[in-house]
Amino acid sequence: MHRKPHVLLIDDDREILRGLSIRLRAAGYAISVAHGGETGLAAAGEIRPDVILLDLRMPVMDGFAVLSRLREQDRTKAIPVVVLSANTAEKARRRALDLGAEYFLEKPYDPKTLIQALRTASDRSATSTANFETGKME
């Protein structure tokens, strides 16, 4: 059976979260929303989404910290992460990718590119999870 892919949005801007939710729900995603890094990290472990869309600059716990904590925990380390940030510096991009982010997208984003990135990232995870857990993928 087909289940809607589940995306967890982590950002500290409520309006960005709201807009992203509308956009991604229309694209066929089930949405969970976390306002801020700490909430986001907790939510990731709890709901184990298919993919996470993560902001970088957030107060208290920033996106880099969330990313490395996600990678440390067994429950979350296989969840693909797409970074969506207003910090476009090459350093930030490099660091996010080194920490294991699948894609680095800049704000403002192009909706088509965003959806494409999420799809590719979550497909990859679905394939590798299936392989890992059941070995049934051809």
Partner: peptide, 27 residues
């Protein structure tokens, strides 16, 4: 310049996000 460009991006993201939601007929 670095900070300003970063700060400008966030409101621009929101404007573009909601404008394109309208544009694409999502509402």
């Amino acid at each position: 310049v670095d900070n300003v460009s970063h700060e400008f991006r966030t409101p621009l993201t929101v404007i573009r996000e909601f404008a394109s939601i309208l544009q694409d007929g999502l509402t």
